[in-house]
């Protein structure tokens, strides 16, 4: 906790140029490689090898003979799986759905996080500590637990909220159409506000206080200081949290999968790209196609993150 509350150094402007590294001799380079060996081995074993395996899987397809019961053959089919994925309407629909949903939800979540961080920045230090801890609680609760908690609140058969609404004489529903997204968005925002607020708050703390004094001398009110000084100086962290959240949304899996238990007709098995991949691999048993889908998702996510970073960075500078 203490490490979180301490203001972190955030790169808002490009720091002074680092001195160019000393030309290391061959021996030095060799030693350097040795130091990175543990990392490299782990990286190879847990990233490169599985991705390579997935890639080789994705170049194959399972074929049967006769009536289809009995031995199967795994045959090399080149990029045929990738061609199918690229033309797979359901896969791209899930991607579009997740992106559209994510862009709205992330904007709302970061907006609230920013607002709270700015408010916290304006109050006394003791209160800050309390509110920070309180707002961080949703993040501390394991995602599965908090999703289950919301699941009980949303459940069409057992929700206390529905009971209350019924007693008040109205009928509400948490799923179907736009409601599905509102319910899921509420859950993700509830989970995400605390952590994003901490990051934004930390970078606010790192801003030099003299700026505010100067602004006050010039007659600026608090909201003006917030809008014209604080926000422009923390765009770096906003872009960063935005990008991380975007990547997170494209990998959205556990929450909708759990929510599907109570709203299967609203959250389909291909609701998000990850759910579609999971279904293909573990329900249908088509590992090869699922591997191709995973790789396409990874590449698409990488491109999107890059574009997002480029576009937002250009706009800010």
């Amino acid at each position: 906790m203490s490490t979180l509350t301490r203001p972190a150094k955030v790169a808002t402007d490009s720091p002074a140029r680092r001195p160019s590294p000393r030309r290391a001799g061959r021996r030095g380079a060799y030693k350097g490689v040795l130091f990175t060996l543990p990392f490299l081995l782990g990286f190879l074993a847990t990233y490169v090898v599985p991705i390579g395996y997935a890639f080789s899987q994705s170049l194959h397809e399972k074929k049967s003979t006769g009536l289809g019961f009995g031995p199967t053959r795994i045959v090399y089919t080149g990029f045929s799986n990738f061609a199918s994925v690229l033309g797979d309407g359901a896969f791209w629909a899930s991607m579009g759905r997740t992106l559209l949903f994510g862009s709205v939800q992330i904007t709302v979540m970061l907006g609230i996080a920013l607002l709270l961080a700015l408010l916290l920045d304006g109050v006394a230090a003791r209160a800050v500590r309390f509110f920070r801890a309180a707002l961080l609680i949703p993040y501390v609760i394991p995602a599965v637990v908090s999703t289950l908690m919301w699941l009980f609140l949303y459940s069409p058969t057992g929700s206390p909220l529905l009971d209350l609404a019924e007693r008040a004489g109205t009928e509400i529903t948490f799923f179907g159409g736009l409601n599905t997204y509102l319910s899921l968005g509420n859950l993700l925002t509830w989970q995400g506000i605390g952590f994003n607020m901490i990051l934004i708050s930390a970078s606010l703390q790192a801003l030099p206080r003299e700026l505010y004094e100067a602004a006050r001398l010039d007659g600026a009110r608090e909201w003006r200081i917030a809008w014209s000084i604080k926000v422009p100086n923390i765009t770096g962290i906003l872009v960063l949290t935005g990008m991380f959240s975007l990547i997170g949304r494209l990998q959205l899996f556990g929450e909708p999968l759990i929510m599907r238990q109570i709203a299967p007709e609203s959250i389909n098995t291909d609701f998000t790209p990850m759910m579609e991949i999971y279904d293909k691999a573990f329900k249908v048993g088509d590992y090869q196609y699922a591997a191709a889908e995973s790789l396409v998702l990874a590449v698409a996510t990488g491109i999107l993150a890059f574009v997002f970073y480029r576009v937002t960075n250009r706009k800010m500078s």
């Binding site: 599985p50 995602a143 952590f195 959240s245 573990f282």
Partner: peptide, 22 residues
């Protein structure tokens, strides 16, 4: 920053597939 937590969730599935590999 909920992507960490989403990843934690997804790691359940990842662990399942990893165990397949192992």
């Amino acid at each position: 920053m909920s992507q960490f937590r989403t990843r934690a969730l997804a790691s359940v599935a990842a662990a399942a597939s990893l165990s397949l590999l192992l």
